[in-house]
Computed example of a mutant assay.
Amino acid sequence: MNILLTSSLLETLKVSVSVWPPGSNVYLGECVLLQCSVESNSSFVWSYGWLKHSTHADPPTPNPRHLVLGDSYSITAVTREDAGSYQCQARRWDSNSSSVEFLSQTATLSVSELPSASLLTLTPSTRQFFREERFTVQCPVSQINSSGWRLKHFPPISGVRPRVSHTDPYSLPGGAVSAGRSDRCEFTADSGNSGLYWCQGAEGRSNAVYIKVSYGAIILKTPAFPVFEGDKVVLVCQYWVGNHSKTTFFKNGAENFTSPGSDRVIQMTLENVTQEDEGFYKCASQDRKMESPEAWLSVSPHRERLQAVELPATKQDVTEVQWDLSWMEMSN
């Protein structure tokens, strides 16, 4: 037996959705994280599900950019189709094997293009790093004053109350603020550096990027931000140790290219990319004993500015997301 309740009806329990970076407006091409939290006096173990309200009349199709892990819902490389209202369902089971579900209030996202003066820079431009690699996150150049931006970091800790660090010499693990520059931070990658980064200032905020630090044997590096049609793109397969003969690249699970070279770093070049090149890529050793996590390549069709996408006041369809499965595909 399932019972569905709205959290606002219960004084002792509150289910809410937080958006990171904070705010209802998100930018094309960035990464966004929604987190469900339950404030309760009980010690129940909770499982989570998600609802997305859309205005599309067509049936929802699986969207690999939408991923869920426990109480977190992440969107990689935001597009205009990601505008909509999102809700979290928190479920607990009673001793008599019946479940009770609590529904959060909606979190509504609108999508617009990032202002050119608000661009965060990541060097090198990739979302995946090996431990001990160095990278730099640079906030935009402020139009107001030299210290107008501060770098923010949201770590990927499921089930923990959100805590955002900002740039000072002690708050970002593995990071060191450049001399006299609170808007620039240099890192030697370790597990504490994984998470969402963005810059905040009097002028608003920058785009956000999700960085993952790997302790595995192989990773694939794709551009951290969307590329444009016609660009030349280099995908880099990198091993932690040793040289490896023949490395195979895959796109959306299908074999795409095999390099005969023998090295610790293997490249695949895409000339004049189109939107057909967009997708999840990975690489693997010849014997398939080493296989990288998938990395998303986002391709934008043009460079013209786009207007914000608001939600029209029409009847909405609701997509229900399955419960608490590890990094499963979401529906748009």
Rank of each mutant, 00 (worst) to 15 (best):
N2L: 15
L5T: 08
L9A: 09
T12A: 13
V17A: 02
W20D: 07
P22I: 01
Y27E: 04
G29F: 00
S40P: 04
Y48A: 06
G49A: 15
W50R: 06
K52F: 08
S54P: 15
S54H: 14
T55Q: 06
T61V: 07
P62M: 10
N63G: 02
R65K: 15
L69I: 08
G70C: 08
Y73V: 09
A77H: 14
A77K: 09
T79C: 04
D82A: 00
G84I: 00
S85F: 02
Q87D: 08
Q89R: 07
S95Q: 10
F102A: 01
S104Y: 03
Q105D: 11
S110P: 08
L120E: 03
T121K: 15
R127Y: 04
Q128C: 09
F130H: 04
E133P: 01
T136V: 14
Q138L: 14
N145Y: 10
N145P: 02
S146D: 13
S158E: 14
R161M: 10
V164C: 07
Y170G: 06
L172G: 02
G174S: 12
G175V: 13
G180D: 13
C185T: 09
C185M: 15
F187N: 01
T188G: 10
A189Q: 00
S194H: 07
L196I: 11
Y197G: 01
Y197L: 10
W198V: 03
Q200E: 15
G204F: 00
S206V: 11
Y210H: 09
I211E: 00
K212P: 01
G216L: 05
G216Q: 10
P223I: 02
G230Y: 04
G230Q: 06
D231K: 00
V233P: 00
L235I: 09
V241G: 08
V241W: 12
F250W: 11
F257P: 05
P260M: 14
R264I: 12
Q275E: 09
Q275I: 10
K282D: 15
C283L: 05
A284L: 06
Q286G: 04
K289F: 07
K289V: 09
M290Y: 12
E291H: 03
P293E: 15
V299N: 00
R303I: 08
E304V: 13
L306G: 07
T314W: 13
Q316E: 14
D317L: 15
D317E: 10
